Each structure stands twice: as C-alpha cells, then as structure tokens.
Computed example of a mutant assay.
Amino acid sequence: MVFFSVVVPTYNRRPILEKCLRALEQQQISAETAIAGYEVVVVDDGSTDGTVDWLKAQASEFPHVRLFEQDHQGPARARNLGVQQAQGDTIIFIDSDLVVTPPFLQAHATGLEKGRQRLGSDRCFTYGAVINTCNFDNPTAEPFKVTDFSNAYFATGNVAIARHWLETAGLFDTAFQLYGWEDLELGVRLKNLGLKLIRCPEAVGYHWHPPFSLEQIPKLIDQESQRGRMGVLFYQKHPTWEVRLMIQMTWLHRLLWGTLSLGGFLNERTLRPLLAWLLKRDRPQLALEIARIFLNWNNVRSVYAAYRESQGLASS
C-alpha cells in the first residue's frame, strides 16, 4: 500500500491555487487500488496575496490539506520543508499553478506499481504529462500540443517518487536561490543512484499561465538572466556535456540563437511592433514563441557571462 504526500509550494498564486487544491480534493481512487490514502502538503513561501488567511478560512473545504509557512526563500527550501513535514512514503511534486484531472493519483499509483514490477525494485519514479494552458476558467479543456512535449528526466511539475530516494539523494540544493534548475540538478543525483524514469501520460496536469503580454517581457528577461546564473551553478556541480546542453552553454546554442536573433538585433525593442500586432489579433502563443528568440539569446549570453565571472573568481 502507498500513502501519497502531494507537495505543493506556492508564492502569490492564490487564484490558480484554489483550482489546484479543489482538483486534488476530487480524486477518483479505485476500491481495489494500492493507495492507502493521501495528503496535500501546501508550503506557502511568504505569500503577500492573502493565500495563508484564505486557506485557514477555507480549511473545511480542503480536508486533505496541511499548511506550512516559511519566509520567502524560494521553491527549493519550500519543497524540502514539504518533504520533511510529509507523512507519506511516496512524494508527488506539483506546482501550485497545475490543475490535475480526477484519475491523477490513481494513474501515478498504477505507473509506480508497473515500474516496480518491471524493474524488480522501487528504483524508479513516474513522470506525468503537463499541458500548458492560458484558459483560467476551464484549464483542463486545453488539448495536448507539440510544444507541451518535455524530454526532461526529473522535473517537479508532475512527478511521483518514493520518499527514501529523495532523502538518499539529499533533497533539493538550497544554493539554487534564483530562478531555475534546482529540480533538474536533483534529477542528476537521482540518475546517478540508478533511478529509472517511468512515463505516465495518464497522470495529466494542466499548467496555467496568463496569456503572453508585452508587460511580461521585463520579468521574462530577468528570469532568463537568473536561469543563466543558476545554470552555471548546475554545471559547477556536474561538469558534464549533458548539463552543458541543458543550460545552453555550447557553441551550438550560441550559433543557433545568435543567428536567429541576428546577433541580438531581433530583441525586445525591435520585435515589439510585431508582438503587439500578433497580440491584437489574439495570437499570444505565437507571440511568445517569437519572443523566445531574444529570450533564449539573453539566456545564452547570461550563461556565458556568469561562467566568465565564476572563472574570474576562481582564479583570483
């Protein structure tokens, strides 16, 4: 029998968190299942939007939820706190902007059991499907798109794993204080322990984000800068070609995004009129894909700048 602890870190996401938690309360679990029960461990990372007060006031609506709080310290510390406070033997990580379907837990349980039977051990974890959507009113209506495919080994948007493997690997590295890479870095350590990924497309989660707008561009550029710096930290911990590919620190990525951006000529300023034109015609997803040209170029430049800085500090 398995007892699930669904760990949900959150920071200023109250509107979509409501949908996330309501979906988790509506799980359909078979009478013949191996699921003994489940809890939802919400870790509030210092929200300022009334999340904690709302959750406490609505506690009767969410009988599976246990709430924990910390000062704003980032998702790595929040997930670690969630694991430490969890009562389950199996952890499911999802983000607080993910809305799951009723068979979600059952699908992860079935996937884990099949994986264990095939491998003859529990040295595995399940990775569910994540479908991106801008539809706040009905997020689960979004169809799967080619851009939703992920080749990641371990990402915390929708993953289930035996708790003891997380503890053996050492949980999340809290040195990753900026945006990005803390989950994939843990994934490298899990892979080194020999854990196998079991894809579980039946465990579907719909990742909501607001439609792309011009106002988001400064934040997105800042995230790419942070992701570049954290990517270098990732590479310093695991200096392999595989990690270089993940963080875009290769000549191929410099050539690709340098060429597509015309050496940086196609940037947030020069592409703004085209993006505005697409948004007026209700094409936010296409506008975002075009914006990725300069966002990825910013990321590649940030990676190399952070790497040069780290090399300078190491030699001084």
Rank of each mutant, 00 (worst) to 15 (best):
F149C: 01
T147W: 08
T140G: 04
Q58N: 14
D137R: 03
V40H: 04
I16C: 01
L195A: 08
A57N: 09
F125Q: 07
F4D: 10
G231A: 09
G50Y: 03
L166Q: 05
M246Y: 06
P218I: 12
S5I: 07
Q84A: 14
V2G: 00
Q85T: 00
L286H: 07
T147G: 03
R79C: 07
W277D: 04
M246E: 12
K280Q: 15
C200D: 08
F136D: 03
Q27I: 07
G46Y: 01
L275C: 00
L186G: 08
W54V: 00
V52I: 01
W181L: 03
G231R: 09
G180V: 04
K237N: 15
Q216S: 14
L178M: 10
E289M: 14
D148T: 04
S60D: 12
Q223N: 15
V41S: 02
C20E: 03
L275D: 02
R308E: 10
H238D: 10
N298Q: 15
W277I: 05
T168W: 03
N158R: 00
E142Q: 14
V99H: 02
A76S: 14
Q248D: 13
E242W: 00
Y206V: 05
E39R: 11
G50T: 02
K196Y: 06
V300R: 13
L262S: 10
P218C: 14
D53Q: 13
G264R: 06
P210F: 02
V65K: 03
P143F: 09
L279Q: 11
A109Q: 11
F176M: 10
G187P: 02
V7L: 08
I217K: 00
T10C: 14
G170S: 07
I131K: 03
K56T: 11
H238G: 06
L260K: 15
V8A: 02
R116T: 09
E268W: 10
S5N: 07
S96C: 12
K114G: 11
H207A: 07
S225K: 13
L279F: 04
L214S: 10
S213T: 15
A59W: 00
N158S: 14
E309Y: 12
L24C: 08
R123M: 13
R66Q: 13
R269F: 09
N80A: 03
H164L: 00
N267T: 11
Y153Q: 09
F136Q: 04
E224Y: 11
A155P: 05
S60A: 13
L252W: 14
S60I: 02
I131Q: 05
Y235R: 04
V2E: 11
L295C: 08
R301D: 08
E268T: 04
H108Q: 04
Q216N: 13
K191L: 12
D95Y: 02
E268F: 06
G128T: 11
R301M: 09
E215P: 01
K219T: 15
L119K: 10
F149W: 04
Q28F: 01
R229P: 00
L178Y: 06
L295M: 07
G88N: 06
W208V: 02
E18C: 13
N138Y: 04
N132V: 06
I92L: 13
E242V: 11
N158V: 03
H72L: 05
R77K: 14
V188K: 09
A291S: 15
R292C: 15
F172I: 03
N151V: 06
R22F: 07
K280S: 11
E202V: 01
